[in-house]
Amino acid sequence: MKACIAQENVSKTTFEDSNLEKKAKNFLIDYIRYPQCKRLINRIFTAQKTNNFKSVAVISQFPEEGKTVFTAVLALGFHMFLDKRVLIMDTVSQTRDESFYYRGLLGHSLLELDQKKKQSCIDLITTRNVGSKIRFQHLQTPDKSTEVEIPDFNQDQDSDVTSDFKLCGFIESMKSNYDLILLDTCALSTANKYNFDPLILAQHADTSILVTTPRSLDRGLLKELTQELRRYNVSSLGMVVNPVVA
């Protein structure tokens, strides 16, 4: 299965059709300019220089704690402010339109960016749920003329069981092409046989970042979580707090 670039097909007029879309398209660019975001991006960037990591697993205890927003913020920040090449691997099963969230979020934002930044990019590997089968489908490569074949991570075409281990190998192979690889994982509480296991991905990634909300800042939950991370020998860069809704 292969993928190719389709950026030339983007129609800018689509965004001008709706007031709603006008409001939305600059949201993320505005959002990452907040001091909290810039400090956060800077902290991770300096940590990367110190620890020399490339792949980061973004994990959380519960769904909807802000992993995707944080991943998008980090990717856009590294792209906008630091001219870095970023790969997002959305490993969450596409049981609903979650992948659209990434595409919409980053797509709108990128339209506003200075197109001169030729060296930097944000690529997205996503999954799509085809019937009961989950597989990676496409890759937008840094070199926009190159086509890269995405291996099928299903152990068996007829099986729903995904191979987390093959994906980890694939991430290793992609490290040379990117400055930062962000693994957006499913929540630990929702991990099942149809998902790529967040703990395995985090263990194979260079480091991990825990996204928390006030709900998951619970003594008991955090105790269990940190014990589990230590048991699986997961390297942790730290935690990011998402206050969720103001």
Binding site: C4, L110, L111, Q140
Partner: peptide, 17 residues
Amino acid sequence: EILPKSVVALPLTLRET
């Protein structure tokens, strides 16, 4: 709300070959 409408206009639109 905006997400389903924006699929066709994405710079990262992904197409199967």
